[in-house]
């Protein structure tokens, strides 16, 4: 096996490896480390059970952003969710952020329901109207409780 051949094949191997890595990092992992153009909004929920950072933010069923972080506020006992909304998407001041589930056991995502105000939210502002995650067990137990009572 001569030298040039070894180097050529090794080079091809390394290129294939790096291409695979780029595919995984950029396409599959959604390049969460590359900042997409957009602005940040926050929202407070009484429960975000099941929601993960990286989850989708949808408007009218279309992806308009992602959840960048979820933190717990010990004073109000609420969850503060940071949203990254794509540039060009306008969110009104009275828009509603609701946590929903895809199917019965599917992923949790945030649905933005547009409001009627003319004032728009800008970078760093908060969505006040929120609907927390609906827990299936809670619904079921409430139903049972009501029929008994």
């Amino acid at each position: 096996m001569n030298k040039i051949n070894v180097q050529l094949i090794t080079g091809i191997f390394v290129v294939i490896g790096i291409l695979s890595f780029s595919y995984l990092a950029i396409t599959v992992a959604g390049a969460s480390f590359v900042e997409q153009p957009g602005y940040n909004l926050s929202a407070r929920f009484t429960s975000v059970s099941g929601l993960r950072p990286g989850a989708v933010v949808e408007g009218a069923g279309v992806r308009i952003g992602t959840v960048s972080s979820i933190e717990f506020d010990p004073e109000s006992f609420e969850a503060i969710v940071e949203l990254r909304i794509n540039d060009g998407v306008l969110v009104q001041e009275d828009a509603i952020a609701a946590i929903r589930t895809q199917g019965i056991i599917g992923e949790k995502y945030i649905k933005i329901v547009p409001g009627g105000f003319e004032e728009l939210l800008t970078d760093g502002m908060q969505i006040y109207e929120t609907e927390s995650a609906i827990s299936l067990e809670e619904l079921v137990s409430r139903y049972i409780f009501q029929t008994e009572g």
Partner: peptide
Amino acid sequence: GMIDAVVWSDVRLGL
């Protein structure tokens, strides 16, 4: 579905 579910930390763990 794959792109939405996989985040960078999954790739990083494998790496």
